[in-house]
């Protein structure tokens, strides 16, 4: 397998100087061709910033992103993004078919070809015969199918999905998850999907990357060795699934995930209490501030520095941490 996506030392901060908020810090990972990788992390941890950097929508302030070997600067041609908010992402003034054809307009594809390919891809997402409708005439799940179809129509080398199923009901979510896996297998696409939903990440992925709180850093990289054919009911019941899910959940609750961010922001400077809580205050969640105040000791910093796939370490400490947090 060749490497499709290579992210090295990716850093992104908003603003400058004291007011700077580091959303992503020194992220390094790769995604192989044909892989479906999920990034799971607590909400507000910088997942969306990461995706925006990878897709070239915003230039990262540090590090590099390579798509099949080419440095990404600006939006690459053979990359597509599926956003969470389908109702805002689809163009309401275009019919479903025109929406799906949209990316082909900018490529050398004849009108007839565009039409045919749009029909094909709509059929592959289970939406034949709705091409003439407008997006608002479809249900939420169907609208998200349309945006998946639109993303796939130009056969992108890499498909990025930003919490794609977060705004649909549970039933539809299951259907869309299965659809994503099926389409990915059929077309051999490479998908990087970001989610905050642990179950979803394990169910979908060949591989799960666990991200820490803001600034995002990778704390674990798990291979998901579930069978390729997955089923919403039996897969989710299987022991393997349950234990993988538990592992990811523990990682997400581990002190590494909860604390890495705050410790990281202060690792260069000597750790003073005020600095740590400053870092917490810039993060958008109130919980961060609480975490920052609790973890100004040098212990937290050393722990955080050891990032990478140290899953079991994190697991052991996770239960301790939750116990102390509750008391």
């Amino acid at each position: 397998m060749s490497t499709m996506l290579e992210v090295s030392g990716l850093t992104h901060q908003y603003g400058r100087g004291e007011r700077a908020h580091v959303a992503v810090r020194d992220l390094t990972f790769t995604v192989e061709s044909g892989q479906l990788a999920c990034i799971v992390g607590p909400s507000g941890c910088g997942k969306s910033t990461l995706l925006r950097c990878i897709s070239g929508l915003i230039p990262a302030t540090g590090g590099s992103v390579r798509l099949h070997g080419d440095e990404v600067s600006g939006v690459p041609d053979d990359l597509a993004v599926v956003f969470q908010d389908y109702s805002r992402s689809l163009f309401p003034w275009l019919t479903v078919a025109k929406n799906v054809e949209f990316p082909l307009r900018w490529q050398k594809v004849s009108k007839a070809d565009r039409k045919r390919r749009a029909e094909e891809v709509l059929e592959s997402v289970g939406l034949s015969g709705v091409g003439k409708k407008y997006p608002w005439q479809l249900s939420g799940g169907m609208q998200q199918r349309v945006s998946i179809a639109r993303a796939l129509v130009s056969r992108p080398a890499l498909l990025l999905m930003d919490e794609p199923f977060a705004s649909v009901d549970a039933q539809t979510r299951g259907e869309l998850e299965d659809l994503t896996r099926r389409v990915q297998r059929d077309l051999g696409s490479t998908i990087l999907l970001v989610t905050h939903d642990i179950d979803e990440s394990v169910y979908l992925a060949d591989r799960v990357l666990v991200l820490s709180k803001s600034p995002a850093a990778i704390v674990a990289d798990l291979d998901i060795d579930l069978p390729d054919d997955r089923d919403q009911i039996t897969t989710r019941e299987s022991e393997q699934f349950v234990s993988l899910r538990g592992e990811v959940a523990r990682l997400l609750q581990s002190p590494q995930v909860q604390r890495t961010g705050e410790a990281d922001t202060t690792d260069a400077a000597s750790e003073s209490e005020s600095e740590a809580s400053d870092a917490g205050a810039t993060a958008d969640e109130a919980g961060d501030a609480a975490g920052a105040r609790a973890d100004t000791g040098p212990h937290a910093a050393t722990e955080a520095d050891s990032d990478g796939p140290t899953g079991t370490d994190g697991t052991a400490e996770a239960s301790d941490e939750t116990a102390t947090a509750r008391s």
């Binding site: 897709s55 956003f83 805002r88 992402s89 163009f91 003034w93 990316p103 900018w106």
Partner: peptide, 29 residues
């Protein structure tokens, strides 16, 4: 014009010269 639509149009590779006619004016209509 909705930021998500702008991001979408950019990620779909909309050339700059089509930007007004394909995205901005329909959204402003």
């Amino acid at each position: 014009v909705d930021q998500v639509k702008i991001d979408t149009a950019r990620s779909l590779g909309t050339p700059r010269r089509y930007w007004l006619g394909m995205i901005v004016l329909p959204a402003a209509m």
